[in-house]
Design a protein around this nucleic acid. Structure first.
Lengths: 124, 124
DNA sequence: CAGTCTATATCGTGATCCGATATACCGTCA
DNA sequence: TGACGGTATATCGGATCACGATATAGACTG
């Protein structure tokens, strides 16, 4: 039924709503990656698995590693000393703050949308 | 501080989580547009204004009209008889269902992310 | 030793977002 | 009435981004 959609935003204000669309265009993989890292440092592959169980989303390898590179470049995550062949990443303070702002804004929009859906059971 | 991120998903399961990334790649403008239309039929420009006050996001004209065309093609919204020079759109039943599933999934992920942020006040 | 899972990386293609630009109607205020 | 700003839609080009395919390789299991 639903096979295509996208959701992001700009951030003009200073409150939580200002965070929508903060990461890249409309934030997607990045939100999932940061949310996963909020639960502890992980390397890419483990991240994929965690995101999949957390959100039911399978991040393609290209999406994953490109997003990681971007996020690191933005200072939202940082690479840790690689153990084996794994390259673990950690959420930075800036990343945590950005994630919180983004999730707050996202939740507000989701709540408003659901409120409208429940209210307008009659189309206008 | 936060200048780029993206967040979307695939939809493998059958529950609410399956809706993440249902519209287009990672849903952004589409989520905002559908959420706005959930509050009543509107034409493009009014939609822009509503989204801006609702989410603090200013949709670029290109983004707006291209997203509207896509959503109509997917049957998630439908065009109404144009009055003046305005082209109002209405949320379809399929659009409402898709939006609800997407917002439910989005809220779940947001809640989990915030939970992790609040829990792990010590980085791992 | 074949197969599967873990693990990272890159490339090309397509999707999509955005700003600029164009057009045009409308109301208002000088 | 004529300049200006707000309303309203549309399209194009460039840039960003997501995705699947592909490549490589170590580890474990049978």
């Amino acid at each position: 039924m639903l096979e295509q959609m996208a959701g992001r935003s700009k951030a003009p204000e200073s409150t939580a709503a200002a965070a929508l669309g903060s990461f890249g265009r409309y934030a997607g993989p990045a939100t999932l990656i940061l949310s996963s890292l909020a639960g502890g440092s992980k390397h890419g592959y483990a991240l994929t698995k965690d995101v999949e169980s957390m959100a039911g989303v399978r991040l393609a390898p290209g999406t994953l590693y490109e997003a990681l590179a971007r996020l690191e470049g933005q200072g939202l995550i940082e690479a840790l000393a690689s153990e084996d062949r794994r390259r673990p990443y950690r959420l930075t303070a800036a990343g945590a703050a950005a994630l919180r702002a983004h999730l707050d804004a996202q939740r507000q929009v989701a709540d408003e949308g659901l409120r409208r859906l429940d209210a307008g059971l009659a189309p206008t």
